[in-house]
């Protein structure tokens, strides 16, 4: 199981939980599980999210491996100028 830290405004979709646990070993699995377990997160996931893994931000890499010891933080999808 992987602990995922959510940003504050997503907590309304997780019953107020700031951190949720999902069964996932990759970025893609994590997104799929989150959308299944917490359907209220699906619109945001479809609009785009980034993932910070031990402080490194990933925007789209589905196959990024994730383990139970990683710090996993969901973030909005980054754009820049």
């Amino acid at each position: 199981m992987v602990k995922v830290l959510l940003w504050g405004s997503l907590r309304s979709a997780t019953g107020g939980q700031a951190e949720v646990e999902v069964d996932a070993t990759t970025f893609k699995e994590l997104l799929d599980r989150l959308a299944e377990d917490y359907p209220g997160l699906r619109p945001q996931i479809e609009r785009g999210v980034s993932l910070a893994l031990d402080g490194v931000i990933y925007r789209e890499a589905w196959f990024t491996p994730i383990g139970p010891d990683n710090e996993v933080v969901l973030m909005p999808y980054m754009t820049g100028g």
């Binding site: 940003w7 910070a52 031990d54 402080g55 490194v56 710090e71 933080v73 973030m75």
Partner: peptide, 11 residues
């Protein structure tokens, strides 16, 4: 090691 204000811990 700082937990950033937006969530992740800085490297």
């Amino acid at each position: 090691g700082t937990k950033s204000a937006y969530g992740p811990t800085f490297d």
